Amino acid sequence: MKKIVISISDEQYEKMDAHIKKGSALNLNNETFSGYGLILNNAEGGFSWLEVDMYTNLDLGDVNWSIEES
């Protein structure tokens, strides 16, 4: 089995965590049970970025990622 590993900075993590908490609070207030998506984008030349999609799309910027053996 393979796994995808995405490395993010502490600042990116804090932004992602705040975005998800805000979306979760909206879910609670509106009595909905939606989730969120992580979108890993990769352009030719090795340029990669990560987005968090929950109500709005949060672009976390550049990330490093790899596919590894479990």
Rank of each mutant, 00 (worst) to 15 (best):
Y13E: 11
I20Y: 02
N42Q: 15
N41F: 04
L50I: 01
K15M: 12
E51A: 04
S9H: 03
V52S: 06
K15Y: 14
N29K: 06
E14L: 05
I4H: 06
E68V: 15
F47T: 13
L40I: 08
N41Q: 00
I20M: 02
I4G: 03
V5K: 08
E51C: 06
D59M: 01
N29Y: 12
N27H: 04
K15W: 13
G61V: 04
L26F: 10
S24A: 13
N41W: 07
I8V: 15
E11I: 07
G46S: 08
D62W: 10
G46N: 09
E51M: 06
V63S: 03
I67G: 05
Q12P: 00
S7Q: 15
Q12V: 04
I4P: 01
W49F: 14
G35F: 08
S70Q: 09
E14M: 03
N41K: 02
Y13G: 03
G35D: 15
D53E: 15
N30Y: 15
K2A: 11
S7H: 14
V52C: 05
K2S: 08
V52L: 07
D10I: 09
L40Y: 10
G23D: 04
L38G: 13
S48R: 06
E51S: 01
S34W: 10
G46D: 15
V63C: 08
E69F: 13
L38P: 01
S70I: 14
A18V: 06
M54Y: 09
G45Q: 04
E68S: 15
K21W: 12
M16F: 07
D53P: 04
N64R: 05
K3V: 14
S9R: 00
D62F: 10
A43W: 05
A18T: 08
K21H: 14
M1L: 03
N57S: 12
D53M: 09
Y55D: 14
D59A: 14
M1W: 06
K15I: 13
L38F: 15
V5H: 13
V63I: 07
L50M: 03
K15E: 15
D62N: 06
S9A: 01
K22Q: 12
I39D: 15
I8A: 01
D10S: 13
G35P: 02
G61W: 08
E51F: 07
G23T: 05
E68A: 13
K2Y: 14
D10K: 05
G35H: 11
G61P: 00
V63G: 04
N30P: 02
